[in-house]
Amino acid sequence: MDWNTLLFAIFPYVALFTATIVTIYRSIYRPFSISSLSSQLLERRWLYWGSISFHWGVTIILAGHLTAIFLPQSILLWNQAPLRLYLLEITGIGLGIWATLGMFLLLWRRVSVDRIRAVSTPMDFVVLVLTLVSMVTGIIISSYYRWGSTWFTGIFTPYVWSILTFRPNAAPLLPLPFIIKLHVFNFYLMAMAFAFSRLVHIITWPLGYLLRPWQIVIALRKTRTDAP
Protein backbone atom coordinates (compact mmCIF):
# COMPACT_ATOMS: atom_id res chain seq x y z
CA MET A 1 0.00 0.00 0.00
CA ASP A 2 1.25 3.47 -0.82
CA TRP A 3 0.73 6.92 0.67
CA ASN A 4 -1.70 7.94 -2.03
CA THR A 5 -4.03 5.05 -1.16
CA LEU A 6 -3.68 5.69 2.55
CA LEU A 7 -4.39 9.41 2.37
CA PHE A 8 -7.00 9.53 -0.37
CA ALA A 9 -8.73 6.15 -0.30
CA ILE A 10 -8.64 5.03 3.35
CA PHE A 11 -8.32 8.20 5.41
CA PRO A 12 -11.47 9.70 3.77
CA TYR A 13 -13.55 6.90 5.28
CA VAL A 14 -11.96 7.32 8.69
CA ALA A 15 -12.65 11.06 8.55
CA LEU A 16 -16.18 10.88 7.15
CA PHE A 17 -17.10 8.00 9.46
CA THR A 18 -15.85 9.94 12.48
CA ALA A 19 -17.71 13.06 11.36
CA THR A 20 -20.99 11.18 10.92
CA ILE A 21 -20.92 9.03 14.05
CA VAL A 22 -19.64 11.64 16.46
CA THR A 23 -22.04 14.28 15.11
CA ILE A 24 -24.99 11.94 15.69
CA TYR A 25 -23.65 11.06 19.14
CA ARG A 26 -23.12 14.71 20.00
CA SER A 27 -26.54 15.82 18.79
CA ILE A 28 -28.20 13.14 20.94
CA TYR A 29 -26.11 13.35 24.10
CA ARG A 30 -24.84 16.96 24.01
CA PRO A 31 -27.58 18.73 22.06
CA PHE A 32 -26.86 22.14 23.55
CA SER A 33 -23.20 21.98 22.49
CA ILE A 34 -24.21 22.20 18.80
CA SER A 35 -23.51 25.86 18.33
CA SER A 36 -20.90 28.17 16.94
CA LEU A 37 -21.02 30.20 20.18
CA SER A 38 -21.66 33.73 18.99
CA SER A 39 -19.17 36.34 20.13
CA GLN A 40 -21.15 39.21 18.67
CA LEU A 41 -21.81 40.66 22.12
CA LEU A 42 -18.10 40.87 22.81
CA GLU A 43 -16.97 42.50 19.58
CA ARG A 44 -19.13 43.62 16.67
CA ARG A 45 -17.16 45.70 14.17
CA TRP A 46 -14.48 43.23 13.11
CA LEU A 47 -17.02 40.43 13.25
CA TYR A 48 -19.11 42.20 10.61
CA TRP A 49 -16.21 42.61 8.16
CA GLY A 50 -14.75 39.19 8.85
CA SER A 51 -17.78 37.00 9.28
CA ILE A 52 -19.97 38.36 6.47
CA SER A 53 -17.08 38.21 3.95
CA PHE A 54 -16.05 34.75 5.04
CA HIS A 55 -19.50 33.18 5.22
CA TRP A 56 -20.89 34.54 1.95
CA GLY A 57 -17.70 33.74 0.05
CA VAL A 58 -17.24 30.26 1.44
CA THR A 59 -20.92 29.26 1.14
CA ILE A 60 -21.09 30.15 -2.55
CA ILE A 61 -17.77 28.38 -3.23
CA LEU A 62 -18.95 25.30 -1.35
CA ALA A 63 -22.14 25.35 -3.45
CA GLY A 64 -19.92 25.50 -6.56
CA HIS A 65 -17.95 22.43 -5.45
CA LEU A 66 -21.20 20.56 -4.74
CA THR A 67 -22.60 21.52 -8.16
CA ALA A 68 -19.45 20.16 -9.83
CA ILE A 69 -19.82 16.90 -7.89
CA PHE A 70 -23.55 16.32 -8.35
CA LEU A 71 -24.31 18.15 -11.63
CA PRO A 72 -20.98 18.15 -13.53
CA GLN A 73 -22.75 18.44 -16.88
CA SER A 74 -24.16 21.83 -15.91
CA ILE A 75 -20.63 23.14 -15.32
CA LEU A 76 -19.33 21.65 -18.59
CA LEU A 77 -22.22 23.13 -20.59
CA TRP A 78 -21.66 26.56 -19.02
CA ASN A 79 -17.91 26.36 -19.70
CA GLN A 80 -18.37 25.57 -23.41
CA ALA A 81 -17.70 29.20 -24.33
CA PRO A 82 -14.35 30.52 -23.06
CA LEU A 83 -15.90 33.83 -21.95
CA ARG A 84 -18.39 32.06 -19.71
CA LEU A 85 -15.57 29.90 -18.33
CA TYR A 86 -13.60 33.05 -17.44
CA LEU A 87 -16.66 34.61 -15.80
CA LEU A 88 -17.15 31.55 -13.59
CA GLU A 89 -13.46 31.21 -12.72
CA ILE A 90 -12.90 34.88 -11.94
CA THR A 91 -16.03 34.95 -9.79
CA GLY A 92 -14.64 31.92 -7.95
CA ILE A 93 -11.20 33.47 -7.45
CA GLY A 94 -12.84 36.73 -6.33
CA LEU A 95 -15.11 35.02 -3.80
CA GLY A 96 -12.10 33.05 -2.57
CA ILE A 97 -10.04 36.19 -1.99
CA TRP A 98 -13.00 37.92 -0.31
CA ALA A 99 -13.58 34.97 2.02
CA THR A 100 -9.86 34.66 2.79
CA LEU A 101 -9.59 38.35 3.69
CA GLY A 102 -12.56 37.80 6.00
CA MET A 103 -10.88 34.76 7.52
CA PHE A 104 -7.67 36.73 8.19
CA LEU A 105 -9.77 39.40 9.93
CA LEU A 106 -11.47 36.75 12.06
CA LEU A 107 -8.13 35.17 12.97
CA TRP A 108 -6.62 38.55 13.79
CA ARG A 109 -9.68 39.44 15.88
CA ARG A 110 -9.48 36.19 17.81
CA VAL A 111 -5.82 36.77 18.60
CA SER A 112 -5.83 40.50 19.29
CA VAL A 113 -9.20 41.30 20.91
CA ASP A 114 -8.82 40.40 24.58
CA ARG A 115 -12.50 39.59 25.17
CA ILE A 116 -12.54 37.20 22.21
CA ARG A 117 -9.27 35.56 23.20
CA ALA A 118 -10.68 34.96 26.66
CA VAL A 119 -13.57 32.88 25.31
CA SER A 120 -11.52 31.04 22.64
CA THR A 121 -10.77 27.33 22.90
CA PRO A 122 -7.79 25.66 21.21
CA MET A 123 -10.27 24.00 18.85
CA ASP A 124 -11.37 27.44 17.61
CA PHE A 125 -7.82 28.08 16.44
CA VAL A 126 -7.59 24.62 14.86
CA VAL A 127 -10.74 25.38 12.86
CA LEU A 128 -9.46 28.81 11.83
CA VAL A 129 -6.12 27.42 10.64
CA LEU A 130 -7.69 24.48 8.77
CA THR A 131 -10.12 26.82 7.03
CA LEU A 132 -7.34 29.22 6.16
CA VAL A 133 -5.19 26.44 4.64
CA SER A 134 -8.19 25.30 2.64
CA MET A 135 -8.87 28.75 1.23
CA VAL A 136 -5.28 29.79 0.53
CA THR A 137 -4.57 26.52 -1.31
CA GLY A 138 -7.90 26.98 -3.11
CA ILE A 139 -6.89 30.41 -4.40
CA ILE A 140 -3.48 29.12 -5.51
CA ILE A 141 -5.08 26.18 -7.32
CA SER A 142 -7.76 28.24 -9.04
CA SER A 143 -5.30 30.85 -10.26
CA TYR A 144 -2.04 28.93 -10.82
CA TYR A 145 -3.52 25.60 -11.97
CA ARG A 146 -6.30 26.96 -14.20
CA TRP A 147 -9.10 26.09 -15.09
CA GLY A 148 -10.25 24.07 -12.14
CA SER A 149 -13.98 24.23 -12.81
CA THR A 150 -13.50 22.10 -15.92
CA TRP A 151 -10.75 19.73 -14.81
CA PHE A 152 -12.57 19.09 -11.53
CA THR A 153 -15.30 17.32 -13.53
CA GLY A 154 -12.70 15.08 -15.18
CA ILE A 155 -10.59 14.19 -12.14
CA PHE A 156 -12.49 14.94 -8.95
CA THR A 157 -16.12 14.22 -9.82
CA PRO A 158 -15.28 10.54 -10.58
CA TYR A 159 -12.99 10.44 -7.51
CA VAL A 160 -15.63 11.79 -5.10
CA TRP A 161 -18.20 9.39 -6.54
CA SER A 162 -15.75 6.51 -6.10
CA ILE A 163 -15.54 7.43 -2.41
CA LEU A 164 -19.31 7.94 -2.00
CA THR A 165 -20.12 4.60 -3.65
CA PHE A 166 -17.53 2.69 -1.55
CA ARG A 167 -15.32 1.82 -4.54
CA PRO A 168 -12.43 4.18 -3.71
CA ASN A 169 -10.08 4.89 -6.59
CA ALA A 170 -7.42 7.43 -5.68
CA ALA A 171 -5.11 6.61 -8.62
CA PRO A 172 -6.06 9.72 -10.67
CA LEU A 173 -4.86 11.90 -7.77
CA LEU A 174 -1.34 10.44 -7.70
CA PRO A 175 0.26 12.63 -10.42
CA LEU A 176 -1.42 15.90 -9.28
CA PRO A 177 0.63 18.80 -7.86
CA PHE A 178 1.26 18.88 -4.10
CA ILE A 179 -0.96 21.93 -3.49
CA ILE A 180 -4.01 20.18 -4.94
CA LYS A 181 -3.35 17.11 -2.78
CA LEU A 182 -2.95 19.36 0.25
CA HIS A 183 -6.30 21.01 -0.52
CA VAL A 184 -8.01 17.59 -0.66
CA PHE A 185 -6.23 16.17 2.40
CA ASN A 186 -7.01 19.33 4.35
CA PHE A 187 -10.69 18.77 3.59
CA TYR A 188 -10.49 15.36 5.25
CA LEU A 189 -8.73 16.92 8.24
CA MET A 190 -11.65 19.35 8.47
CA ALA A 191 -14.07 16.43 8.29
CA MET A 192 -12.08 14.83 11.12
CA ALA A 193 -12.36 18.02 13.21
CA PHE A 194 -15.97 18.63 12.19
CA ALA A 195 -17.76 16.80 14.99
CA PHE A 196 -15.34 17.94 17.68
CA SER A 197 -15.49 21.65 16.94
CA ARG A 198 -17.79 24.55 16.13
CA LEU A 199 -17.83 23.34 12.51
CA VAL A 200 -20.92 21.24 13.37
CA HIS A 201 -22.97 24.41 13.11
CA ILE A 202 -22.84 23.92 9.31
CA ILE A 203 -25.49 21.20 9.55
CA THR A 204 -27.46 22.72 12.41
CA TRP A 205 -31.12 21.77 12.32
CA PRO A 206 -33.98 22.62 12.34
CA LEU A 207 -33.33 25.00 9.46
CA GLY A 208 -36.11 27.41 10.36
CA TYR A 209 -33.54 30.04 11.21
CA LEU A 210 -32.91 30.56 7.49
CA LEU A 211 -36.42 31.91 7.01
CA ARG A 212 -37.35 33.48 10.31
CA PRO A 213 -36.79 37.21 10.89
CA TRP A 214 -33.35 38.04 12.16
CA GLN A 215 -32.75 38.49 15.85
CA ILE A 216 -30.87 41.26 17.55
CA VAL A 217 -28.60 40.03 20.29
CA ILE A 218 -28.74 42.44 23.22
CA ALA A 219 -26.87 42.32 26.51
CA LEU A 220 -28.63 43.66 29.53
CA ARG A 221 -26.66 44.61 32.57
CA LYS A 222 -26.95 46.87 35.53
CA THR A 223 -26.04 50.51 35.13
CA ARG A 224 -22.51 51.12 36.21
CA THR A 225 -22.50 53.65 39.02
CA ASP A 226 -18.74 53.87 39.36
CA ALA A 227 -18.15 54.65 35.67
CA PRO A 228 -15.93 57.69 35.04
Binding site: S53, W56, Y86, I90, G96, I97, W98, S143
Partner: peptide, 14 residues
Protein backbone atom coordinates in the same frame (compact mmCIF):
# COMPACT_ATOMS: atom_id res chain seq x y z
CA UNK B 1 -5.13 38.95 -15.39
CA UNK B 2 -7.00 36.12 -13.67
CA UNK B 3 -5.75 37.11 -10.21
CA UNK B 4 -6.24 40.82 -10.91
CA UNK B 5 -9.83 40.36 -12.08
CA UNK B 6 -10.49 38.15 -9.06
CA UNK B 7 -9.04 40.75 -6.70
CA UNK B 8 -11.18 43.44 -8.34
CA UNK B 9 -14.24 41.27 -7.78
CA UNK B 10 -13.42 40.79 -4.09
CA UNK B 11 -12.82 44.52 -3.72
CA UNK B 12 -16.27 45.15 -5.21
CA UNK B 13 -17.74 42.75 -2.62
CA UNK B 14 -16.01 44.64 0.20
Amino acid sequence: LALGAGSAFSLACL
